[in-house]
Amino acid sequence: MRNKFQEYINIQITKNNINDISFLLYGILAELIFERNYFSKNSDIRSFTKEILQEDYKEYLFASRTSLYARIIKDIKLNALNDKYKFVQQANNIKLFLQKSNVINEKFSPEQTNGNKIKKKNSVKSDPIEEWRKIINSNKG
């Protein structure tokens, strides 16, 4: 997915390439919303939607990332059709967010990026089989 982030950052966003931008944007938003690496709590997404997407969603949408994603995509599609200026503005805001938050380099830190906390989960995951081996081997003695 990092390649898609880089591709999105490198592409020029205009009213003429809205279809191309929107396809990239849907995947990028899915990654940002569904992966807890970027927003560990659902409530953390609120500042992203307000500041970057310039949308103020009701509280019930933040209870489910799936519902929130569906609503964001619906609004972005409507903007692509009816309000191209707002779509381009949102797309550029997301582009700036990706650049400032170092998402591509995977250098997440708890620093503020337009009020959004970007966190990186511990990338070292223990293998369950190795954990069982340790337990079994410790009991052999």
Rank of each mutant, 00 (worst) to 15 (best):
L24N: 08
S123P: 03
D56Q: 13
F48R: 05
N116V: 10
W132T: 02
L68R: 09
V88R: 04
I136E: 06
I9S: 00
E130F: 02
I135L: 11
S67Q: 13
K58G: 06
D44P: 03
I118E: 03
K120H: 11
N122K: 13
Y57R: 08
K58N: 12
Q6Y: 06
I52W: 00
T49I: 06
F23V: 12
N79G: 04
L98W: 00
E111K: 15
D56I: 11
T113G: 00
F34C: 02
S138C: 06
G27I: 06
N102D: 10
N122D: 15
E35P: 01
R36F: 07
T49M: 07
K15V: 05
E31N: 10
L78A: 08
Y69P: 02
K74I: 08
P110F: 15
L32A: 03
N42M: 01
T66Q: 10
G141K: 15
K100C: 06
N17A: 06
T66S: 11
P128I: 12
K121F: 10
E31T: 09
E55Q: 13
F108I: 01
K134P: 01
K50Y: 08
S67W: 11
Q89G: 05
D83E: 10
R2G: 01
W132N: 07
V124K: 12
G115K: 14
Y85L: 10
N139Q: 14
Y38P: 03
L53K: 01
S22G: 03
I94T: 03
N16W: 06
F23S: 13
T14M: 07
Q90D: 08
Q90N: 10
I11G: 01
V124T: 10
E59N: 12
S22V: 13
K119Y: 13
K134W: 00
K107A: 12
N116Y: 08
E106P: 02
E130V: 01
I18H: 05
N19A: 09
N37S: 09
E106L: 13
F34N: 06
R133I: 02
D56P: 05
N19T: 10
Y8H: 02
T113V: 15
F87E: 12
F97D: 05
D56E: 15
G27V: 03
I52S: 01
I135Y: 05
I104T: 13
A63V: 12
W132V: 07
P128C: 04
I104N: 02
K50R: 14
Q90S: 06
F108S: 09
I52P: 01
K84V: 07
V103H: 04
F5W: 00
K84Y: 06
Q54P: 03
S40M: 11
L24Y: 14
V103I: 15
K121N: 12
M1L: 09
R65D: 04
L81C: 05
E131K: 15
N37Y: 07
N37I: 05
I33L: 12
S123G: 08
I45W: 05
E35R: 14
N102C: 04
I72R: 03
K119C: 05
N3D: 13
R46N: 08
K119E: 10
L32V: 07
F5E: 00
R71K: 15
F108R: 14
Y8N: 00
E35V: 05
L68Y: 08
N116C: 15
N93Q: 09
K50Q: 14
L61P: 05
S67V: 04
N82P: 01
D83K: 09
